[in-house]
Amino acid sequence: MLIQWINTGLRKIPTWVLYLILPIPGLMAIAAGLTDNLGPEPINELEEELGEFALKLLILGLAVSPLLHFTRINLVRFRRAIGVMAFAYVTAHFLVWFVIDLQGLNQIWTEIVKRPYVTVGFAGFVAMIPLAITSNDLSVRRLGRFWRILHRLTYLVAILAGLHFILLSKGFDVEALAHMVVILAFLALRVNKWRRGLQSGLQGLRKKFVG
């Protein structure tokens, strides 16, 4: 009953609303940085805020399927906007690091190659690019089955992002580990589903050719 009421409410929200709401925390952080309101070390703070929000959006994106499965709350319509905004935040996070933190093109490659946390974070960013490019109806139609397979990359991206967080933390960082636990839990739920799908697919084949 409640679920139905929630889903009816959700259906009334146009998806473009997310493209207006989700940029707000990032824009506020940038505004705070420009007006000297991000604390003593605004460059790091801005980097962190953009990165953490991107990670939260990635996790929210992963939560859509299990949420539907276990509670019947349907956020599937919003998943593209969540994913695209996660990419926008990761891009902003990368640009802050590259343009105002690193301050030099000559350093970027050394940093990417030499520092594992940068390598992993950058790999996650690169893996998001094909997902962002194919986040439109035309690509979904054109790519067909392959689109679904391609977009499983989201799990890899989330794991790389979680690992990036763990690697850049000093010592035993509970917050970074907690994010990773959530990501791995969502992945575990999916892997089970994929395995069942694969098994039933194989069974189908067997029936067709053997039985």
Binding site: D36, P42, Q103, Q107, R115, P116
Partner: peptide, 18 residues
């Protein structure tokens, strides 16, 4: 392994601190 030690940023220089 995680930070180049060749340079540093002195706290207090704002968002475009060199």
């Amino acid at each position: 392994p995680r930070w180049s030690q060749a340079s540093e940023r002195k706290i207090g220089g704002g968002l475009f601190n060199r």
